Amino acid sequence: MAIEKVKAYFEKYNLADRIQEFEVSSATVELAAAALNCEPKRIAKTLSFMVGGQAILVVTAGDAKIDNAKYKAQFGTKAKMLTSDEVVDLIGHAIGGVCPFAVKEGVAVYLDESLKRFETVFPACGSSNSAIELTIEKLEKYSNYSAWVDVCKCWN
């Protein structure tokens, strides 16, 4: 199970005990915010796309939406989200638990500027009922991100 991979990943950093698992679903921004009792915008949602035959992840704030023009300017292609089967095969997590941790080799992770306004955010941890609170600096470190990007709208 993907949550076990994420727990093993965070064990290396002595952070596995910070992963929160809920009795309720946290598969959407709204459900995660309710489970965590926080503002939806502080949920770090991880979106999966195909760029030039490679799967990528873009982590955005919960209230941000992909801006197609900005996305195309950044990645040189139209935003094409992966199907649920592709997400499992190419990323290694199922929709609802996709996160930038313990992903398959070759998956590039990008962090969207919409996250920078927060001290801490809550990404999922590989299951549809998990999350971890991380500072932006820790998110950078543990996501092994490639770059910061500006590909969203509706948040500022």
Rank of each mutant, 00 (worst) to 15 (best):
F118W: 09
D85V: 12
N37F: 05
A32I: 06
E23D: 12
K12P: 04
K7S: 01
Q74V: 10
N14L: 12
P40R: 10
M50A: 14
E4S: 12
V109Q: 00
H93E: 02
L111K: 01
M1P: 10
C125I: 05
I56W: 01
V151L: 00
V88I: 15
N68E: 15
G126Q: 08
K41V: 02
F75V: 09
D85Q: 14
N144K: 00
S48M: 08
Q74Y: 08
G76V: 13
M81T: 15
C154Q: 13
A102I: 07
T120G: 01
A64P: 06
S127H: 10
W148P: 02
V109S: 01
A124E: 05
A44M: 07
I136A: 04
G126R: 07
L47Y: 13
E39T: 00
K12T: 04
G52T: 03
F101D: 02
E105H: 08
A35Q: 02
D112R: 04
K65G: 10
C154G: 04
A2K: 11
M1A: 12
T46Q: 03
G96C: 12
S143N: 02
G97R: 09
Y71I: 00
V87H: 12
I66G: 13
K116G: 05
V59E: 03
D150C: 08
D112W: 03
V151S: 02
G106F: 10
K41N: 10
H93W: 11
V87G: 04
V87M: 15
A34E: 14
A33D: 09
I95F: 01
D63G: 14
Y145G: 02
A94F: 09
N14A: 13
D63R: 11
G126I: 03
A61R: 06
C99L: 00
G96N: 15
V98S: 07
I19G: 01
T60Q: 04
S84R: 13
Y142N: 02
V51P: 01
A61T: 11
P100W: 00
Y145D: 06
S114W: 07
S146W: 02
L90G: 05
N37H: 12
F10P: 03
S48Q: 09
T28F: 08
A147C: 04
K65E: 10
N156Q: 12
A8Y: 08
K72C: 01
A55Q: 08
S127L: 10
D89K: 15
C152L: 01
I136K: 01
V149P: 02
A124H: 06
P100N: 03
R42V: 14
G96V: 14
V51G: 07
I132S: 05
W155N: 04
E11W: 09
V6Y: 00
G96M: 14
